[in-house]
């Protein structure tokens, strides 16, 4: 049998994407790495300092605190948003005439810009004029997100859950809608209850959309900046200062471009590591 040589030119099709990614991501990243090993006094006066800024970043207690705060925030919102999103998706009727309306209503928080979300919650949660703050204080709960770190954290998490659970719900709903009715009929014949249907019919088929949902939320929450900046400004003290806010203060506020570049590279590597670990853990399950 003669095997025809494979002349697969399809990879040429990805060249435009490669060029765009090189221009928008690779070249800027290389520039940041170049800055990270220099002390930049102005754009024409720079001194090579080796790995000094990396050492300074990694041993900086404020960086370490912001990093663990960031991890805690991402873990908290994922633990809440993923199950809640699935629960909401399971509650949406799949064949009702109201399904479209429910989906549109669910999508509304996703359409609101980040700084507007921060402003909405800043007003909503104020203890003097905000609906949430006033109601909580009137029922005897001493709530003030501007002076109490725990209140600031609860407000931030609630704001993120309000803003982004819809995304998980919509993705999960799309996944649930793709399950053929025959699967439910078979489960019903077998006498499966609601939990068993979820565990053995729905959850395995939701996995690919949940991977996307978790990855999106993980990356986005790990880079969160605008909402906490508008709501708490990183306070009280530094209790809600996350990595991106600390980085912005360093790069834009203090114009410490060298240390900020080293910070950015470390930040990028951790984001890359978490996404890769998560992705790999999913692949590993697929491998069996």
């Amino acid at each position: 049998m003669i095997v025809k040589p494979r002349r697969d030119k399809a990879w040429l099709g990805v060249l435009p994407v490669l060029l765009i990614v090189a221009f928008s991501a690779v070249v800027p990243l290389m520039t940041v790495v170049n800055y990270s090993v220099q002390d930049v006094l102005d754009f024409n006066t720079r001194f090579f300092v080796g790995l000094e800024w990396y050492e300074a970043t990694l041993t900086d207690p404020r960086f370490q605190a912001a990093f663990f705060r960031q991890l805690a925030f991402s873990a908290t919102i994922l633990i809440i948003e993923i199950p809640l999103g699935i629960l909401v998706a399971r509650g949406i009727p799949r064949t009702s005439k109201y399904t479209g309306l429910i989906i549109v209503l669910l999508a509304i928080p996703l359409l609101i810009p980040w700084n507007v979300v921060g402003t909405i919650w800043q007003l909503f949660a104020r203890s003097d004029i905000g609906l949430l703050g006033v109601v909580l204080n009137s029922v005897g709960i001493d709530y003030n997100y501007t002076s109490n770190p725990a209140d600031a954290w609860v407000t931030l998490v609630a704001m993120d859950v309000w803003h982004w659970t819809s995304l998980v719900a919509l993705l999960s709903f799309a996944g649930l809608s793709a399950i053929p009715p025959a699967f439910y009929q078979a489960a019903e014949i077998d006498g499966a209850g609601s939990w068993q249907i979820f565990r053995f019919v729905e959850l395995p088929r939701l996995r690919s959309v949940l991977v996307i949902a978790v990855l999106l939320r993980l990356m986005d929450s790990f880079m969160i900046y605008t909402e906490p900046f508008v709501l708490t400004g990183g306070g009280p003290g530094n209790t809600t200062t996350f990595l991106s806010q600390y980085l912005a203060t360093m790069a834009v506020g203090q114009f410490d471009l060298g240390p900020a570049a080293a910070f950015s590279v470390v930040y990028f590597l951790f984001t890359l590591l978490f996404c890769w670990l998560f992705y790999t853990s999913v692949i590993r399950e697929d491998d069996g």
């Binding site: 290389m30 520039t31 790495v33 090993v37 220099q38």
Partner: peptide
């Protein structure tokens, strides 16, 4: 020049 290259980073990326 705007990329602010240094010898060691050039060697690294190369």
């Amino acid at each position: 020049a705007w990329m602010a290259w240094t010898g060691p980073t050039l060697v690294f990326f190369s």
